[in-house]
Simulated scan of single mutants.
Amino acid sequence: MHLPPESGHAPEAMPPLDEVDEPVKVTLKIEDWLTVIVMGALALFTFANVLVRYFTSQSFAWTEEFSVFLMIVLALVGSSAAIARDRHIRIEYFSGNGSMARRKKLAQLGAAMVAILFGLIAVLSVRLVWDDYRFNETSPGIGIPQWWYSIWLPILSLGMALRAVGLFIRRGRRA
């Protein structure tokens, strides 16, 4: 709610334009909530392990294995959010200078390369999951099926590829 200046109240500050998410078809809250959930689980598992170690001088083996898995998931989900928000790494000297047509083409090229990369990772990691399943690979720490962990790589990679395709389309529409 914005009040007129004569009301004696200062107007609310608007966030800078570069901090406002541009409209997307699939809500960015997916990545935001996944980040919150994964960070919460990571904190709970780690805290539980600290308490058990402190009081019993033993460790939960499963917490270390799950923590590594959750950190990988967190990196992939964070990457998806960065792609969707167009915050992925680039050399600003090249991407921010030049004509608007050049900058638009570079933005589309970057999005296309990200989409191709994560599309390839998604396709190739399906083979990894299949091998883990077919050969009954188990995790080193607690012996659960390895594919329970590896199944998330193609799924999250496909999500990142789709986010990059969406970014490519949005950059193509930009004037």
Rank of each mutant, 00 (worst) to 15 (best):
Y133G: 01
I121M: 11
L156G: 08
S80N: 13
G166E: 14
L70F: 08
F45Y: 14
R85V: 13
M71R: 12
V68T: 15
G96K: 11
A81K: 15
A75T: 04
G143K: 08
A164V: 07
M113T: 08
V77D: 04
V123M: 09
V50H: 09
R134D: 14
G119D: 09
V129K: 00
V165R: 00
L117C: 15
L128K: 01
N97D: 06
R53P: 04
A75P: 00
L70K: 15
G96N: 09
A48G: 14
S139F: 02
P154G: 12
P154H: 06
A61F: 09
L167M: 08
P145I: 02
F118W: 11
S125P: 07
T56Y: 04
F135E: 12
M100S: 14
I72H: 06
A161F: 10
A111T: 03
I91S: 02
S125A: 11
L153N: 01
L128P: 01
W148F: 12
W152L: 14
G110Q: 10
L70G: 14
A61E: 15
Q108G: 06
K104I: 09
L158H: 04
R102K: 13
A43W: 00
Y54F: 13
Q58R: 11
I91F: 14
A43Q: 00
R53A: 14
W148I: 12
F94P: 02
W147N: 06
W130H: 10
S157I: 04
R85G: 13
T138Q: 12
I91L: 14
G119V: 03
S79N: 05
S139A: 13
V123Y: 08
S125M: 09
A164I: 06
Q146V: 00
A43C: 02
T46L: 09
V50E: 05
F55V: 15
I144D: 02
F55K: 13
K105R: 15
V77Y: 09
